[in-house]
Amino acid sequence: MTDAIVIEQARKAFGKKVAVHGFDLRVPQGTMYGFIGPNGAGKTTTIRMVMSIIFPDSGRVEVLGRKSAVESKDRIGYLPEERGVYKKMKVGAFLTHIARLKGVDGAAARARVHQWLERVDLGDVIKKRCEELSKGMQQKVQFIASVVHEPELLILDEPFSGLDPVNMRLLRDLIAEQHAQGTTVIFSTHVMHQAQMLCDHIVMINDGKKVLDATLSEIRSRFDPNTIMLEPMNIETETLELERVDGIEKVQRVEGQRLEVSIAPGTDATKMIAKIAQAVPVARIELRRPTLEDVFIKIVEGSSVHPGAEGATRSEGRADGSTGLDEQSELMEETTEGVK
C-alpha cells in the first residue's frame, strides 16, 4: 500500500513559539485517520503544512506521491477549521467557482453542485447568497466544497464543530461514504468519541508532538482497562467490604446505585471481576473499556507539562501578538474541563 501522506521531521515555528516539533507520520492510502489533541496542540498547523498553505521550517512533507500538495492540490479536498464563504456570492456560484478552481470543468461542476446540494437537503438555496444561510447550512456547503471535485485525499479540520445531532450524523455518514469509495480521509477533532466512532487509526498530537500513532484496537489492547463498573445488591454495606479486597485502589459511587472501582495497575482485570463477585453479592458487574478520552487524558497527564499551566503560558505568549495563527488564540480550557 502506498502512502497518501508522508511527514518526515516537519517542524514549524511562529516567531519563538514552536507550533509543531518535528515528527514522522505515514498515512497509507485508503485509510481513515483521526488527528486528536487539545486545542492549540498543533493539529491545524500540521494540516496546513500538509496542504502547503504554510511550509515547514525544516523536514519534508510528501502528499499523494508528490513533493508537496502544491502539485496535487486538485486531488485533495480540504475543509479548513476556519470556515468562510464569499458572503455576497450565490451558493451555487460559490461552489461552482471552487469546483472549477479545483480543475472540474464548468458544465460538470454545475451538475455536481446541483446533485450535492440536493443530497444534503439544500437544493432550494442554490440561488441564495451565502450570507443568508444559517451556520449549519454554511458548514454543509463548505463540506460540499471540499468533496465536489472527487478528491483522492480528504482533509477535514474539526468537521463536526457547530453541528446539531441530525446534521452531525448526516456528515458522519457522508464522510464514511467517502471513505468507502476509497478516499483517504484525515480529520482532526478534539471531540474524542467522534474519532472513536469513525476512524480506524488515531494520531494524537499534544504540544506540537506526536504522542500516539496506532489503530483503535492497538490502543485498546495497549491501554489496559483498569476500571470495573459494579451495581451491588446493597450499596451501603458493600462499599466498605469492597475496599478491603486486595488489588482495589479506589471505590467511587457514581450515578446513584453504581460503583466505579479502580484497580491497581498491573492487575488482571478479569481476575479482579471474579474476586469481587466472590467478596460481595452483585446485581451487575462489567469491565469498562478505556475510551479515547481516557487514553488521551492519561497521556496528557503523564506528560511533563500540566495542561492547565500550559494553557496559561500560551495565552501570555499570545498577548504580545508576535505569533498569530488563530489556533493559538484558543485556550485549553476545554481540555482542562475534560480532565476534571
Binding site: 498553505i53 480540504y78 479548513p80 476556519e82 470556515r83 468562510g84 464563504v85 471540499s146
Partner: peptide, 8 residues
Amino acid sequence: VVEVVLSA
C-alpha cells in the same frame, strides 16, 4: 474564505 481558496 481564503483558506478554502488557498487549498486550490
